[in-house]
Design a binder for these strands. Structure first.
Length: 571
RNA sequence: GCGGCUGUAGCUCAGCGGAUUAGAGCAUCGGUCUACGGAACCGAGGGUCGGGGGUUCGAAUCCCUCCAGCCGCACCA
């Protein structure tokens, strides 16, 4: 089906284009009508004509018979008011449509790089953002019909592995595995770090171990693999807990590109891009300077002959485009990496590995701050363990359920508490514009009042409750949709607006656009719920209102699922 | 110094060229209480949209400039 917005856009564009090809109607929802088109003023200006006169001409060319009433207002706004039969027909189509009226997009292959924890290191709140945002984007892209290639670019290579492997040897393999398998990654890492800093002999062994690892020494590789495997098992547990769709198959860590690094350097050299500087091999993309105003290098090969992470990033990008044929590359990585990624992208373009036809984007997100507005960082020792946070949220959700005397056996209540906890945490993260710094306030995010995940879940549960009570004494297909009450009409307009909300969330890689829509829809529903009795309404009206409940519940559940949030039927 | 991001009610945030009073949630104050589940609803107070210029019929929204905060700026990833 064609969404309401898309249909209006198409008709308006036709009329605008008749006056000036390609002119944008600037269509959006409005309080002055159901929708408004603001493009007339800009068009009139470019034509050097009177806006109201242009508006009149557009209205004359506009074919919206049976769809909407059009009115010219103010300096030249077009206010569109949908006809009730049309709005009702759109609702009927949505009701009959598995995908709630979302038209399938022309399929693209979308590679999303997200989560990226470090081997033998705890996942902390910083990883939460990448994981949750990336997963929401993956779900949304899949829903509209794209092929998603998730990539978990875990940190599984580099100098720290010398000390980690030596520490593993000191502990003994069995003890080390036991420690890692219970998710005690941080104390493992810290112990290794402490020894490295304090014990020169250990540090010396560690450095030698790095060399052995990089030269492919089989025993060293075997020990390294233990660290990687145990960590991936642990990450998977966290993803399950979070209900994140990443699997071990999506893990393609930095080490996976080792064999390609020499080729990257050779080809950059062959292209004449590689410059030796201070003993390191570098590319100098235009437009980047250091403190002294001198050109800033992207170091692909360090002066000690090791490869930097720029090299593996380049290798990965090259493979993602060249071999995996991704149409879109989304890097869900923190904002502090912005310059690095821009340089990687720039160098990839210089080398011809990133053609203009491929859309490549740094989906940046802000830092995690404490309530004191200071950075929350692992190395400062104040990091919040991701799992610890989840546990706390689960505990609070469980307490709330007990308090409310929700009649459930322990197992069901635990499951429900988990769903609520996930909703609280994910919504808190996804509902703000991602590039802002994120104030991490446990108290606020697990609070079940106001604009929170649990509130949305609750709105959905109430809808399901009404429908449960109605049983099957009504028919969605037979609902008349007279939309006589203002609240019914407002709700209908909300129901019809999912496609443009999702489209805008995808176009901008901004999940919060979808959150804003869902919260608005929930508010429209509660207004309807207050004003319009459902179960006690006269027969025809009852069917209509039950249908509005059903469509609201479906829309909320679907929208939440695209954010990775469950919508339980009861809570 | 250069670059990036951010600056909107006490707090946390939407809005990012449009339409007499700039929205929401929390908090505060006051209501709704025989309730289709009160994790709800209704109402009130609270903002010169960081400052200043400019473009425009119209600017929180675009441009310039200044200020503040955070982040990045060569061999850790």
């Amino acid at each position: 089906m064609t969404s309401t917005y898309a249909l209006l856009q198409e008709r308006l564009s036709g009329a605008f284009s008749a006056l000036s090809p390609g002119a944008d109607p600037v269509l959006r929802a409005s309080e002055h009508g159901d929708y408004q088109a603001n493009g007339v003023m800009a068009l009139a200006k470019s034509l050097g004509r009177n806006p109201r006169e242009v508006a009149g001409e557009i209205v004359a060319r506009l074919d919206l018979e049976g769809v909407a009433e059009v009115e010219v207002a103010g300096p030249g706004f077009l206010n569109l008011t949908l006809t009730t039969p049309f709005l009702g027909a759109q609702l009927r189509e949505i009701a009959a449509n598995e995908r709630l009226g979302i038209a399938p997009a022309a399929p693209r292959r979308v590679l999303i790089d997200y989560s990226a924890p470090n081997v033998a290191k705890e996942m902390h709140v910083g990883h939460l953002r990448s994981t949750v945002i990336g997963d929401a984007l993956a779900r949304m892209h899949r829903f509209v019909g794209h092929e998603v290639i998730p990539r978990n670019h875990v940190g599984d290579w580099g100098t720290p592995f010398g000390m980690l492997i030596e520490h593993l040897i000191d502990l003994g393999e069995e003890n080390a595995v036991a420690s890692l398998s219970i998710g005690d990654l941080d104390s493992f890492y810290k112990a290794a770090r402490t020894k490295f800093d304090a014990d020169e002999a250990f540090a010396e062994r560690s450095r030698a171990r790095v060399v052995a690892l990089q030269s492919g020494d089989p025993e060293t590789r075997r020990l390294w693999q233990i660290l990687v495997d145990e960590s991936v098992v642990y990450f998977s547990q966290v993803y399950d807990l979070l209900d994140v769709s990443l699997t071990p198959e999506d893990v393609v860590g930095e080490s996976a590109y080792n064999a390609l690094l020499a080729g990257v350097v050779d080809d950059l050299a062959a292209a004449g891009l590689l410059v030796e500087s201070g003993g390191a091999w570098c590319v100098f993309p235009a437009g980047f300077t250091n403190r002294e105003g001198e050109p800033l290098p992207l170091i692909v090969k360090k002066s000690d002959d090791g490869y930097g992470y720029a090299a593996s990033d380049l290798a990965a990008l090259r493979q993602r485009v060249g071999e995996l044929h991704a149409d879109d590359l989304l890097y869900v990585v923190g904002a502090p990496q912005a310059q690095h990624l821009e340089m990687v992208f720039a160098v990839a373009r210089m080398a011809g590995w990133l053609p203009a036809s491929v859309h490549c984007e740094h989906v940046a997100f802000g830092s995690v701050l404490g309530t004191d507005r200071k950075m929350l960082r692992t190395r400062a020792g104040v990091s919040v363990k991701l799992v610890g946070l989840l546990d706390e949220a689960i505990t609070r959700a469980n307490e709330a359920l007990v308090e409310r005397h929700v009649a459930l056996d322990d197992e069901s209540r635990d499951e429900l508490a988990l769903q609520i906890a996930r909703a609280a945490i994910k919504w808190a993260d996804l509902s703000t514009e991602r590039q802002r710094d994120y104030v991490f306030d446990l108290e606020r995010m697990v609070s079940f009042e106001g604009e929170t995940g649990p509130y949305l879940q609750y709105a959905h549960a109430r809808q399901r409750s009404i429908l449960r009570r109605a049983q099957d004494t009504w028919s969605l297909a037979a609902a008349p949709f007279a939309l006589a009450e203002r609240a019914e009409r407002d709700l209908a307009l909300g129901l019809v607006a999912l496609p443009e909300a999702l489209e805008s969330a995808l176009a901008l890689s901004q999940p919060h656009k979808l959150c804003t829509y869902l919260f608005d829809l929930a508010q429209r529903f509660t207004a309807f719920y207050e004003a319009c009795p459902v179960l006690t309404a006269p027969e025809g009206t009852r069917d209509e209102r039950l249908a509005l409940c059903e469509l609201s519940a479906r829309t909320l559940a679907t929208g939440l699922s695209l954010l990775g949030i469950d919508a339980p039927d009861r809570m």
